[in-house]
Every structure is written in structure tokens, then in C-alpha cells.
């Protein structure tokens, strides 16, 4: 005898993500989910970005790593409120799921926040599969990686449709990285995505990048 089920395996996550989305809408918080491979400079980009956004926007960060509170410690210096999530508590997961975000978000004073950034776990494979209730997704790629990363991880670059950031451009004179080719590869997967070329070290390209963030936050 066959028992029909037809149920999405990630239903529980998707339901929680919708509840998160409602919570963030009620509190008028814009949520940006940032993903990249490890070491591409997500935290440094946020440290520099939040320090410049903070007078205008009240921010908070949920930062995921398998272990350590190093990232939250670095981010808290900027005046933001950073909450570290270590996924070994949740089984050493390779992504942040909606229930993890829920738990962390309830520890934040959402009433006083305009922008909540989720710094996902460094991984170009599965974080994009998990809806966490965000408004927009940003994928970050550094010029010390390959130009063909978007082609190697097309799902990530397809599902992160908010913006793409090419980081560490201050290193371009010392590398063989072809930044135009990298941007073409991103656009071959996501033709309309805005691409920002930045250096978290020198803050080159930050004006456009930060304007984009302010615009999307205002649009909610």
C-alpha cells in the first residue's frame, strides 16, 4: 500500500523562515544574508561597513561559525550588536537554518534596529538552500579566489540575487585575477545583479556599496 505524502523536506525550515520574515516585518528590520567561502573577507567588510553605516542606521549582526567568538568580538568594536552563533551547538552544521536565526534574533532589541546582517557560515555550497527569513542575499567573492568560482558554484550565485561583492581589489596589481572575467561569470548566471568592486582594507568602492545598502534598507 502506498501512502502519499508530497511534503518538502525543508518544510519545517521554510515555515520558521516565514515566521522570522513576519517578525522582521513587524519590527521594521531589514535583513541581509551574506554568504561567501571562508577567508573572502566577510567579517572585515562588515567591520568597515558597519562603522560607516552606524551613525545613520542602527545595525546588528548574527554571525555564524562552527567555532569561536572571534568574529563577534571584532564586529562589536564597531558599535554594532553582534551575536555569535556556533553551530557545533546545533550539530556542526555547515549553514545557518531559520530556527537558529530565530533564537539569535530574539536576543536582540529588534525595536531599535534598522538593519540586521546575517554573516552566514563560510561555504559556497548549502547556505543558499536555507531560507532564514531574509529580505535580500549578498554573495561575496575575493580576488584571491578563482574567476570561475561563480561557474563552479552556480547555485550560490544564482540564489544570491541581491548583490555580488568582489573584495580585496587592492591586491589586484599582485595577482593574475581577471576581474572583468569574474564579473562576466557572475552576470552570466545572474544578469541583473549589481556587482560592487571593493577593498575592505582600503575602503575603495565603499561609497557605492554602502549607498546600495542604505537604499535597500529604506525601500522596506
Amino acid at each position: 500500500m502506498e501512502v502519499k505524502i508530497v511534503k518538502k523536506v525543508l518544510d519545517a525550515n521554510d515555515t520558521m523562515a516565514e515566521e522570522n520574515r513576519k517578525l522582521f516585518r513587524d519590527k521594521n528590520v531589514y535583513v541581509l544574508n551574506i554568504m561567501s567561502s571562508p577567508g573572502s573577507g566577510k567579517t572585515e567588510t562588515l567591520v568597515k561597513s558597519l562603522a560607516r553605516l552606524e551613525p545613520e542606521l542602527k545595525t546588528a549582526v548574527i554571525v555564524g561559525d562552527v567555532c569561536t567568538t572571534n568574529d563577534a568580538d571584532r564586529l562589536n568594536v564597531t558599535g554594532t550588536h553582534a551575536v555569535q552563533v556556533n553551530t557545533d551547538e546545533f550539530g556542526g552544521d555547515c549553514h545557518l537554518a531559520a530556527h537558529v536565526i530565530r533564537k539569535a534574533a530574539l536576543d536582540l532589541d529588534l525595536e531599535s534596529i534598522d538593519l540586521l546582517i546575517v554573516e552566514n557560515i563560510g561555504n559556497l555550497v548549502c547556505p543558499a538552500e536555507f531560507d532564514i527569513g531574509e529580505d535580500s542575499r549578498v554573495v561575496l567573492l575575493s580576488v584571491t579566489e578563482g574567476e570561475d568560482k561563480p561557474l563552479k558554484y552556480p547555485v550560490m550565485f544564482k540564489l544570491c540575487s541581491g548583490a555580488a561583492v568582489l573584495n580585496k581589489v587592492d591586491l589586484l596589481p599582485y595577482l593574475d585575477f581577471n576581474i572583468d572575467e569574474a564579473e562576466d561569470n557572475i552576470k552570466s548566471i545572474n544578469p541583473d545583479i549589481p556587482v560592487f568592486r571593493i577593498s575592505a582594507k582600503t575602503e575603495e568602492g565603499f561609497d557605492d556599496w554602502l549607498s546600495w545598502i542604505k537604499d535597500v534598507v529604506k525601500s522596506k
Partner: peptide, 14 residues
């Protein structure tokens, strides 16, 4: 994208 992201359990057979 209209298909390719499915992750569904459709039935069990007893």
C-alpha cells in the same frame, strides 16, 4: 527556474 530545486518526500510504500 521552474524545476530542479525539489527536495520532497512523495510517498512511503507499506
Amino acid at each position: 527556474i521552474i524545476s530542479g530545486k525539489e527536495l520532497e518526500i512523495t510517498s512511503i510504500e507499506l
